[in-house]
């Protein structure tokens, strides 16, 4: 039982980072219609930036915060390129984001080299109800939940957030209000960049990142996001947790080499079950 709870804690922690990446996918897709395959890149860059800042002597907390701000700015640049000229079709934008992801490999290798990096997160164990778990897990889950709630407040309560919600709800109506949908798309990319960066700075102490770690991160995040049809943030968040827990259980009780495959198979089975219940899934 204790073992089960430990796997559960580890799963919820890694699932929380998937949930952050997934939320980034959802925010960008809802506003712009683009599936941003550079979403994993933000996490990788977040990890590397925090690593450099920590090595330069910046304090923990501040270093991670600055790294997240920089990834938000990078998100803005990615959006600027991916949205291209107004009227660029989504498939073209998607491939452009793939291109940007590959471009990031060149940047990361030039600046940091091609070896994996890591840094210490919160050290030590925390015992909750007889289960001891790494403090870093608690930090990750806490940060993810706080971020998610803050986003919900931002999108539901602030004027700017409501304008973003309006863009995802009805672009034509939003434009009639005078809302610049293109600029809102850039803002969505910046938010997506920050979310990815946050996932990266939290994840790097647990598992080292290298220049092409973005594929795995993006696949997990995409799997979680697609769970909510790419448009429902709450379902995407839940999808991230399900995926993380499923992977941790497979790795714990069976074999870690199967973790991603089985977790994805579970997601796929759930999705097919949904599709058979309410007819072919239409987006």
């Amino acid at each position: 039982m204790t073992l089960f709870l430990q796997y559960l804690a580890a799963g919820i922690a890694s699932g929380s980072t998937f949930a952050l990446v997934a939320t980034g996918f959802v925010v960008i897709y809802r506003v712009t219609g683009v599936i941003n395959f550079a979403q994993g890149v933000f996490a990788v860059l977040g990890g590397f930036l925090a690593y450099s800042l920590l090595h330069a002597g910046v304090a923990h907390g501040l270093a991670e915060g600055v790294a997240v701000l920089i990834t938000a700015a990078i998100g803005l640049v990615v959006g600027l390129v991916a949205l291209g000229r107004r009227g660029t079709p989504p498939l073209a934008s998607l491939i452009v984001t793939l291109g940007l992801a590959i471009f990031s490999y060149a940047v990361v290798i030039t600046v940091w080299g091609d070896l994996p990096i890591s840094y210490d997160g919160l050290s030590g164990l925390l015992a909750i109800g007889g289960v001891s778990m790494q403090r870093q897990y608690v930090l990750i889950v806490g940060a993810a939940v706080v971020t998610f709630l803050a986003l919900a407040l931002f999108f539901g309560r602030t004027y700017l957030g409501m304008a973003l919600t309006a863009c995802s709800s009805d672009q034509r109506a939003a434009r009639l209000m005078g809302i610049d949908v293109w600029r809102m798309g850039l803002l969505a990319f910046a938010v997506g960049g920050a979310l990815g960066g946050l996932a990266g700075v939290l994840l790097t102490p647990l598992q080292p990142v290298q220049f092409d770690s973005d594929v795995g991160i993006a696949v997990n995040g995409f799997a979680a996001a697609i769970f909510g049809g790419l448009v429902r943030p709450v379902t995407a968040f839940a999808g991230g947790l399900v995926l993380g827990v499923a992977e941790a259980m497979v790795a714990g009780y069976y074999r870690s080499s199967y973790e991603t495959a089985i977790a994805l198979a579970v997601m796929l089975a759930l999705m097919l079950w949904q599709a058979s219940r309410r007819g072919p899934t239409e987006e």
Binding site: L264, L268, T281
Partner: peptide
């Protein structure tokens, strides 16, 4: 192929990893 669009994209991606 009961899945469409992005769902199918995900399904095929997952299939490859499996």
């Amino acid at each position: 192929l009961r899945l469409r669009g992005h769902y199918l994209a995900f399904g095929t991606l997952a299939f490859q990893l499996i």
